[in-house]
Amino acid sequence: MTQRAEGRTVAILAADGFEEVELTSPKEAIENAGGVALVVSPEDGEVKANRHREHGIKVPVDQKLDEAKAEDFDALLIPGGLFNPDALRVNQKALDFASAFFAQKKPVFSICHGPQVLISAGLVNGRKMTGFKAIQQDLKNAGAVVSDEPVVVDSGLVTSRNPDDLPAFNDKIVEELCEGKHQAQKQSVVA
């Protein structure tokens, strides 16, 4: 086991209805690389996963969103699922939290429907991205340059399509986490 990410801490922004494997698999990859992955949520106590459309496990919340600060973390992970992004994208504190990682030039990782949070935060214009097939047009409409690939990396922003792409997504998460800040990470490009 390599400890490449030792000393690095990732905030996993999640609400009820996240896709279980899109949180658990990257979390395991981060921890296997020596990093720490903490669940940050507007919820208190624990958040409930979905496995596709069925109920999944419950995951303990490590830190309430109200108390979380981007400067205390090295990177941000936003898992997908149908309900998680919907809850987060209408929560101003979640949008501000995500925006702070871009402002601080820290890596941001998002999979499946997770990029919808970044759309609502106004963070995708001009960025190379991918996402679940059903949201790719939404990404384009928000100004992203979209390609239908397993993983797309754009200066510290790592996006992926679905659980089938998790091996490649997890590899890029660890790689980008180890690289640290990206000076080219930006909030948005004005069209």
Rank of each mutant, 00 (worst) to 15 (best):
M1L: 14
T2K: 12
R4V: 14
A5N: 08
R8F: 11
A11R: 03
L13P: 08
A14E: 07
A15N: 08
A15Y: 09
D16N: 15
G17T: 07
G17E: 12
F18Q: 00
E20D: 11
L23D: 09
S25M: 10
S25R: 12
E28V: 12
E31F: 11
L38Y: 12
V40A: 10
E43T: 02
D44A: 15
V47M: 12
N50W: 15
N50Q: 05
N50G: 05
H55I: 11
G56W: 00
I57D: 08
Q63G: 08
D66T: 04
D72G: 10
A75Y: 04
A75F: 06
P79A: 00
P79E: 02
G80T: 06
G80I: 03
N84R: 01
P85R: 00
P85G: 08
P85F: 01
D86A: 11
R89E: 15
A94P: 00
A94Y: 03
D96L: 02
S99W: 12
S99T: 14
F101E: 10
F102H: 10
K105I: 07
V108W: 02
F109R: 10
H113K: 06
P115Q: 04
I119F: 01
A121T: 00
A121D: 03
G122C: 08
G122A: 02
L123Y: 02
G126Y: 02
G126L: 12
G126D: 11
R127Y: 04
F132E: 13
F132T: 09
F132M: 04
K133F: 13
A134E: 14
I135C: 09
I135E: 06
Q137V: 06
L139H: 10
L139A: 05
L139E: 08
K140H: 07
N141M: 12
S147K: 15
E149Y: 04
V151T: 09
V151G: 06
D154S: 07
D154L: 05
L157I: 15
V158I: 11
T159M: 03
T159K: 05
S160V: 07
R161L: 11
P163I: 01
P163H: 00
D164Y: 11
N170T: 04
K172D: 07
I173K: 01
E175K: 13
E176M: 11
E176I: 07
E179M: 15
A184M: 14
A184N: 15
Q187R: 13
Q187G: 10
S188K: 15
S188V: 14
S188D: 08
V189D: 11
A191M: 13
